[in-house]
Amino acid sequence: MSPGLYIAQQIINGVSLGSLYALVAIGLSLVFGILRMTNFAHGDMMMVGAFGALTLGAAGVPFELALLGGIAIGALTGVIVERVAYRPVRGAADVTLLLTSLAVTYILENLGILLFTSSPHDFPIPEWLDSSYEFSDGQITFTQVNVLTVVLTGISLSLLGWFVTRTDMGLGMRAAAEDMQAANLVGLDVNKLIVVAFALASGFAGLAGVLWAAQAGVVEPSMGFTPLLKAFVAAIIGGFGSIAGALLGGYLLGALEVFIVAFLPSELSPYRDAIVFSLLIAFLLFRPYGLLRTTREVKL
């Protein structure tokens, strides 16, 4: 097998995985940027979105609509969680917010177990999605789900970029992320901006959840945990609170994970996650602002 094709295959794998990390990491960063809060329940919006799409699919809704439904259900859940759990404790000590988000995680996951049991469910995908591409005699292969992941991530992130840089509300959100009090003072409706940030972040997580489930073929209530940790690492690598940083971190992490498995001796493959989290510790120690430094200190 030619090394060039092998590398190309790994890049494809890395971009596909990195897209999912980027989607989740950007949501973490959006919320952190405006509230300075690490939302540990963010991974559960993936689970909610995936189960939402699964339930809609089981009720006969076509996959394309169920996917949109998963995004909407994720976004709605994020908005409800903000309203019910986070807003009442806003302005309290950081650790209060942190613990609240952990509590929300437990509640959502146990709700998932209550409704769907803790065992994995098959996540059916339609025929058009259940196919793969092969090039160069099968030396390069990728699935239709990979393509869908990369395309939908690209569309979502482009829309986010447009929103943040070209609209009043996006400008307001960036202003509130810089200084919430000053934003209040120039008459920006900070509550509304926070709700929109949660809706966007959780909608992205819902999308990531459906795509993740489509790739894995299964959904389970605890499915959000690992991607959340990975997205957290990605956001730290890029610079916590920075949208561009989360994007960069997501793709770097995706590529790194794939490359560890592909290019390091196979005995090291089981240590993939250990290597990734060592990287997190290294960044926290030596470059806590990440690659794209944000203007504020990092609060964890």
Partner: peptide
């Protein structure tokens, strides 16, 4: 000052002008 330090000068004014 309590400016939106990371935004441009123009964006600082625009963010307030929305009102």
């Amino acid at each position: 000052t309590r400016l939106f330090a990371g935004l441009t000068v123009r964006e600082n004014v625009r963010a307030a002008a929305q009102l």
